[in-house]
Design a protein around this nucleic acid. Structure first.
Length: 391
RNA sequence: GGGGGAGUUCCCGAGUGGCCAAAGGGGACCGGCUGUAAACCGGUUGGCUCCGCCUUCGCAGGUUCGAAUCCUGCCUCCCCCA
């Protein structure tokens, strides 16, 4: 009999474990299970939300099972070319290869490399000939494919759905055949695909996989965390950035993050929510960058955000001055402000400071600028040095 | 193959000849406040050394003193019928 405590750990936070009892049956066979997780390579980073199923994979690995990480290089490559370019840009082969490589590195932040098998699905999908593809398409009907929520919604909203997209769940299911998955992990949005994987495996004479989904992590805006929206905390973002982004989540989301990300039973709102959020941010940074970086990131946050002081390390900006004054908006562009027009607006709004004092004019005496600390908004700082321009 | 509908500034979405750099919402940014880069309140949101000028409303032409709005051609997308 499968150890109930172990099953609880493996299925911790799971939204679905289907079909019921099947995981226990597979565990009882006593051999290491092959636990699959597919990742597409449409964007260059894995974020804290997508790490949640990875954390499950890690739990399986720690119990002696094998993690099969599938890099969807091929599914990304054939990805929908129809006009939805703004949402799903078709990536170049180079981009896909580059993304694919960094993905594996990122995933290893969470996974145990010694128990991970990395596979690229181009390995088998590239070899399918047309007859085989047609055989694959017989697994499902159009009506069945259209029952999937996002397809149905798009269909009802008269938004485009390309045939290649309909093929996607089948291709993903074929991955399960190729790697002979015992379990497939995914977010709850993947439930449909995971169950389709069962059908495909059955059609190919294999024992269907168990589908295990985890809830989607909501970000500070209340939306599902997503790289394309930009509300993400990437596993490879700089420590300070990770810390700040994590601190942006509203208090109401803390319990969910504690449960899913920290895998902690503590109630973060019981005592001091601020302290609880700091602990969470430290944990997120420490996983990616280590304890030391986490402490430094917290110190930075305290100094810059809570106390409103300049960071310890500030980039240098050099300005050429031909006369007595310098056109400040142009300097702001060097700090990362989008345009001089925006720089003007920032100044007008009191968002630009020289040595802590709000600037009100566009032209600033070079003498006042030289060696001064320039600040644009809350987050952009630079030390200015003026170089005489004798041209 | 036939018919109907649509393409607007980062996104959604108003706008049918001048009052349009273009309503409203979202997002983002700035300020205030704050335990936080949260919440809340107020403001800003094409570019330009900017009281003015320049470029934008799928693309290319055209009509007009004047076009996001009218005409012609093209491209793209959606739906229905076959």
């Amino acid at each position: 009999m499968a150890d109930p405590a172990l099953v609880r750990e493996l299925t911790r936070n799971a939204a679905h474990v289907l079909p019921e009892g099947e995981l226990e049956r597979k565990l009882d066979r006593g051999r290491p299970l092959r636990v699959k997780l597919g990742i597409d390579v449409t964007s260059p980073d894995i974020h804290v939300g997508r790490a949640i199923p990875l954390q499950r994979m890690r739990a399986f690995q720690d119990a002696g099972h094998v993690g099969v990480l599938i890099v969807g290089d091929y599914t990304t490559r054939i990805g929908d070319p129809s006009g939805r370019s703004s949402e799903r840009p078709v990536l170049s082969d180079d981009e896909i290869d580059r993304n694919a490589r960094t993905y594996v590195d990122q995933a290893m932040i969470v996974l145990d490399p010694d128990r991970t098998e990395v596979r690229y699905n181009g390995e088998w999908l590239a070899k399918l000939d047309f007859a085989e593809i047609v055989r694959l398409t017989r697994v499902a009907t159009v009506a069945e494919l259209l029952t999937r929520d996002d397809f149905r919604k798009r269909y009802e909203a008269e938004l485009p759905i390309s045939v290649s997209e309909l093929l996607y769940p089948l291709a993903q299911g074929y991955d399960s055949v190729a790697v002979e998955a015992d379990v497939e992990l995914g977010g709850t949005d993947q439930l449909y695909n995971l169950l389709m994987g069962r059908k495909v495996m059955e059609a190919y004479g294999l024992e269907p996989q168990v589908a295990l989904t985890t809830p989607l992590l909501l970000s500070w805006d209340g939306e599902k965390m997503s790289s394309s929206i930009g509300n993400n905390v990437p596993l490879t973002a700089p420590a300070e950035e990770q810390f700040g982004r994590t601190m942006r989540i509203p208090d109401e989301l803390l319990p969910e993050w504690y449960r899913l990300v920290l895998e902690s039973d503590d109630d973060p709102l019981a005592a001091d929510p601020m302290g609880a959020k700091l602990r969470l941010a430290r944990w997120v940074v420490a996983r990616s960058h280590g304890e030391e970086a986490a402490s430094a990131a917290e110190a930075h946050f305290t100094r810059v955000v809570r106390e409103g002081r300049a960071p310890e390390e500030v980039p240098e900006v050099t300005v050429a001055a031909d006369g007595g004054t310098v056109y400040l908006p142009a300097v702001l562009v060097d700090l990362g402000v989008a345009s001089t027009s925006e720089g003007r607006r920032l100044i007008a709004q009191g968002g630009v400071r020289l040595d802590g004092e709000a600037v009100t004019e566009l032209e600033v005496p070079a003498s006042r600028l030289d060696g001064a600390l320039l600040q644009a908004g809350k987050r952009r700082f630079a030390r200015v040095s003026v170089r005489a321009d004798t041209a």
